[in-house]
């Protein structure tokens, strides 16, 4: 079958709502774009463990510590589902990790901000995971089977992350004046980066048409951002936190919030590597990889020994 005919069938399948599976024919641009998106997504899960891991030993109670440990473990799991889903497109995980460690691969801009206080852990769960859920529930309807299935599983798990974060913020916001101030401060610092992490505005987002038609992207960045804001602002108001946007107002006609200008310069600067923690995140990741090498070597040696003993017996 020629490529034109293959492409027609591929697009018809997607239009009919069917999933594309690893061995199915797919255009090279589709495969490439998915590898890029899915590996960036996997990297974000793995790098995302670092800012939160920073607070595991300093969690304010055993309950909070157990929750945070479980959340960070989930992020590792999400990274693994996503790397294995990416491998179905014919790329090796080791190659992807190499791209992350060398600084060639990108990951979500949000993880280049520091976690200065305990309230930041609340803000991350509530806002960062909240924004991620908006994006991921859309991606779960995407056309590539393994990615879509990973998203379904991840979304189920993220819902706990989102709630535990909100609970942290709620407790702080209802606490002493100092605790409330800490919650507001974390909210002030994480609000704009959370809005930005959903990606550049639609007029600056390249080649979206084809990606939408191929159901690689399901919704525009601005549409997802709007939904996130509409849902999150009332949550903030409910616990008495003030959204750090002087221009924010509710439009009675459209039924949506309108926000002030977004500092895209900051966003692109962080993406380029100039955020407060870019260098530290990569350094920590490379170090974790090095420090874990002996575990992998031991596991390999153990497996070889077991296989040998089995052969003798």
């Amino acid at each position: 079958m020629d490529d034109k005919k293959q492409l027609e069938q591929f697009e018809a399948k997607i239009a009919a709502g069917l999933k594309i599976e690893p061995k199915d024919w797919m255009p090279e641009a589709y495969r490439k774009q998915l590898i890029r998106m899915m590996s960036q997504h996997a990297h974000s899960e793995i790098v995302g463990m670092l800012p939160e891991g920073n607070w595991i030993t300093r969690a304010p109670s055993l309950r909070r510590k157990a929750i945070l440990l479980a959340k960070v473990q989930d992020e590792a799991g999400h990274g693994l589902y996503l790397y294995s889903a990416t491998e179905t497109l014919g790329v090796d995980r080791s190659e992807l990790l190499e791209q992350l460690h060398s600084g060639k691969a990108k990951y979500s801009s949000i993880f280049n901000y520091p976690t200065l206080t305990w309230a930041d852990i609340g803000a991350i769960g509530w806002l960062v995971d909240g924004a991620a859920i908006m994006n991921q529930t859309a991606l779960a309807r995407g056309s590539y089977g393994p990615y879509s299935r990973a998203m379904v599983k991840i979304c189920k798990e993220e819902s706990f992350h989102n709630r535990q974060g909100y609970e942290i913020m709620m407790n702080l916001a209802q606490g002493t004046p100092e605790q409330k101030e800490m919650a507001q401060d974390a909210f002030n610092r994480w609000w704009w980066p959370s809005i930005m992490m959903l990606g550049p505005s639609d007029d600056k987002s390249p080649n979206s048409d084809q990606l939408m038609r191929w159901k690689v992207k399901m919704e525009s960045n601005d549409a997802i951002r709007q939904r996130f804001i509409d849902r999150t602002v009332p949550q903030a108001e409910f616990i008495g936190l003030k959204v750090p946007d002087a221009d924010l107002k509710f439009n009675d006609v459209t039924g949506h919030y309108e926000h002030g200008p977004i500092n895209w310069e900051e966003f692109f600067d962080v993406i380029k590597g100039n955020g407060p923690c870019n260098a530290k995140r990569i350094k920590d990741r490379v170090e974790a990889d090095k420090k874990g090498a002996w575990v992998r070597e031991a596991a390999t040696a153990y497996a070889a020994k077991q296989a040998k003993e089995k052969l003798v017996a």
């Binding site: 479980a70 473990q73 989930d74 799991g77 693994l80 589902y81 294995s84 889903a85 491998e87 995980r93 393994p146 299935r149 990973a150 798990e157 596991a299 390999t300 153990y302 497996a303 070889a304 077991q306 296989a307």
Partner: peptide
């Protein structure tokens, strides 16, 4: 449900438990 990398079957099962059956 998906896949894992592991040096042998035993460790593959343990990894699969941690990755795919945490709940």
């Amino acid at each position: 449900v998906g896949s894992v990398h592991a040096p042998d079957a035993e460790m593959a099962i343990q990894n699969a438990r941690d990755v795919y059956t945490r709940r």
